[in-house]
């Protein structure tokens, strides 16, 4: 076994006749990893397996060298922020986090001060003495996250942390994940909000119908999708002249000039060659390029190509 953060071998889990995840084999080295997939892809099942909440029906999973299910040693280094909004409604936020910290082995005083620090960090300093029963979705999310990070775990699992949050809270959450990542915490984060995941990490696991569809940094995955030509958009002074020249370049499949002129959309199967040759062509044709953008190198496009 390599020193991977997470490794799964033929990992499968089904609920009666319903397949949650099916025959997943993968290795994740660490850092921040986004877990993506459409609804019903098996993301939550995978996270529950990794968090040790449920057992595999077949295959195995190891995280930081531990078998997760009901493993107390593993739970010492794990922070889990589940998807459901349930909290102990009769407690206030500080009591809730303190209680869970006490279960992690801290004494009452230490648990309280850690809880306060964690709640301050997630932006709940002002509301930590309020009962969680009256909390909004965003406040619940922050409370759960505070509980998950308060004991300074090495590995943090966060299930759909951005769903239902307003843009401001989302930005704060993303900043927090980035900060935790910089502190060396490994994070596995599942979400539907692709561009926000993209702002946290480039490393993804893409699940679909219970199977692993893609894994790795987004640009590298995109490169592997050779079936789809890469799309590049250029704004240039003399777009028509540049278009003519680019059409002769090997690998270019289509070139489209916008009716108003000045904007070119190019599709090419050989992006490396395109980038290598473009400066010379542009200089030769005196095209006057203003901007150049790869429009389908992002996560959205990768997701669309793979899942759509």
């Amino acid at each position: 076994m390599s020193g991977a953060l997470l490794s799964a071998q033929g990992l499968s889990r089904w609920y009666g006749p319903v397949v949650g995840v099916n025959d997943l084999t993968l290795e994740v080295d660490g850092g921040i990893v986004g877990l993506l997939g459409p609804n019903g892809a098996g993301k939550s099942t995978f996270l529950k397996l990794v968090a040790g909440e449920i057992r595999p029906s077949r295959g195995s999973v190891r995280v930081l060298g531990f078998e997760p299910f009901a493993n107390r040693e593993y739970f010492r280094v794990l922070g889990f922020c589940p998807q459901q909004d349930a909290l102990y409604e009769e407690l206030d936020a500080r009591e809730f986090v303190s209680f869970l910290l006490r279960l992690s082995g801290f004494d009452a005083r230490e648990a309280r001060s850690r809880a306060e620090r964690a709640l301050e960090r997630t932006g709940l300093a002002d509301a930590m003495l309020r009962r969680t029963a009256g909390f909004s979705k965003g406040m619940r999310q922050r409370t759960k996250l505070a509980a998950a990070i308060a004991h300074e775990p090495r590995f943090l699992i966060v299930d759909e942390p951005l769903t239902g949050l307003d843009p401001l809270v989302r930005t704060e959450m993303i900043a927090l994940f980035q900060e935790l990542g910089r502190e060396g915490v490994h994070i596995l984060i599942s979400s539907h909000v692709l561009h926000e995941i993209e702002s946290v990490t480039q490393d993804i696991l893409l699940l679909h119908r219970g199977r692993l569809l893609a894994q790795g940094p987004v640009p590298e995955i995109r490169k592997l999708l050779s079936r789809y030509p890469h799309k590049v958009e250029i704004h240039a002074r003399d777009a028509r002249r540049l278009a003519r020249a680019l059409l002769e370049l090997e690998g270019t499949s289509t070139v489209h000039v916008a009716p108003e002129g000045g904007r070119l959309s190019i599709e090419t199967f050989d992006l490396a060659r395109f980038h290598a040759e473009l400066p010379a062509i542009a200089a030769r044709e005196r095209a006057g390029i203003h901007t150049l953008e790869s429009t389908d190198a992002g996560l959205d496009a990768v997701f669309d190509y793979l899942v759509g």
Binding site: E53, L78, Q84, A86, L87, S104
Partner: peptide, 10 residues
């Protein structure tokens, strides 16, 4: 559904 919190603690 709060049992998750308990069962992910050591």
């Amino acid at each position: 559904r709060t049992i998750t919190y308990l069962f992910s603690r050591p």
